[in-house]
């Protein structure tokens, strides 16, 4: 599972499956006993925009569909039976319930697809509760459902500048969202070892590298990659104790790789990716690693496509 000529990921590389896809299908609500139908008041005269506001308020209401219909009535003065018809089998409220159920079910499914390991860490029920809070706090404002999952990080990051309540879960979510981002990021031509070798050695200390948009560095106080890998291997890992880690996530072709880094290699790579000249970055690791060792790391990163360009010198 090692990409040819690239760094050897210590933990898995995989063709991440992207299951968070839009389709025009509707999630199926649980079957319930039809409600009793009520007598119809005069038909609503709400204009189109008013009818749409009514409908959206009702189906996105965090409570029951009844609560949603009542809230929409309070806002617009229009009752459900004035706006919608019943069918021979179902009341207007039963019919509206199809949309009320589908709204949250679709978004919960999208979040579950993006965060399967977080779902395991929390348990299915707690994850669904979390997802509902996320959805109510961050209603989607984008046509792209594939991008919606980002709001999970915003939610877990805490409120009003306070630290996150569950930092391990936040870091785990950061890793899972990084896998999604890396899939969607472009992979421009990488800096090749040959191109690097063509640069005269005296210029190397001043070289500044640009990193690939399809990589992420993820430092954490927890071993998040080990936890994720255990889950993906079919284990049921318990929540880990703090143990600092740093992970490099990157994509080569269709495959996304995860590589654990030591604090030293993380520091060096982070410096280079932030634009620190090569000579200055290497000075920081002097005394901690031999020149040959540093060169091996560097060559592995270049071969792995971590860098897309070089300037300076």
């Amino acid at each position: 599972m090692t990409p040819a000529g690239g760094p050897a990921p210590t933990e898995g590389g995989a063709a991440e499956v992207l299951d968070v896809e839009r389709a025009s299908a509707t999630p199926t609500p649980p079957v319930r006993k039809p409600r009793r139908r009520t007598a119809s008041p005069p038909a609503s005269t709400l204009p189109l925009g008013g009818a749409q506001s009514w409908f959206l308020e009702a189906i996105t209401h965090p409570g029951s569909v009844s609560s949603g219909a009542l809230a929409a009535r309070r806002t617009t003065g229009t009752s459900i039976d004035a706006l919608l018809t019943s069918s021979p089998a179902l009341s207007a409220l039963d019919r509206l319930a199809v949309y009320h159920y589908a709204y949250r079910a679709r978004l919960i499914d999208a979040l579950a697809d993006d965060y399967p390991t977080l779902r395991h860490a929390l348990g299915v029920t707690a994850f669904e509760s979390l997802a509902r809070r996320v959805i109510d706090r961050f209603p989607s404002q984008t046509p792209n459902l594939n991008a919606y999952g980002r709001v999970m990080l915003d939610h877990l990051a805490g409120r009003d500048g306070r630290p996150p309540r569950r930092p391990f879960l936040l870091d785990l979510a950061r890793l899972e969202w990084a896998l999604v981002e890396v899939i969607h990021a472009p992979t421009p031509p990488r800096l090749t070892p040959a191109a690097l070798r063509s640069i005269p050695p005296e210029r190397w200390p001043n070289l500044r590298f640009s990193g690939s948009p399809s990589l992420r560095l993820l430092p954490s106080r927890w071993p998040v990659n080990r936890y994720l890998q255990a889950f993906r291997s079919g284990e049921a890992p318990a929540l880990p104790k703090p143990n600092p880690s740093c992970l490099l996530v990157y994509r080569q072709g269709f495959t996304v790789w995860r590589m654990d880094l030591s604090p030293l290699t993380h520091g060096l790579l982070a410096s280079l990716l932030s634009g620190v000249p090569l000579g200055e970055a290497l000075e920081a690791v002097e005394g901690h690693a031999g020149a040959d060792q540093v060169m091996r790391w560097f060559e592995a990163w270049v071969s792995g496509g971590v860098f897309t360009g070089v300037a300076g010198g």
Binding site: S24, T26, S140, Y148
Partner: peptide
């Protein structure tokens, strides 16, 4: 695409919502 609407006032339901079938619509 579909004869529908998916949201209003900047919010997106990600569902294919029905329209009142009127001359205005």
């Amino acid at each position: 695409d579909h004869l529908c609407w998916t949201g209003v006032q900047g919010r997106n339901s990600h569902d294919l919502l029905p329209l009142p079938l009127t001359p205005e619509s």
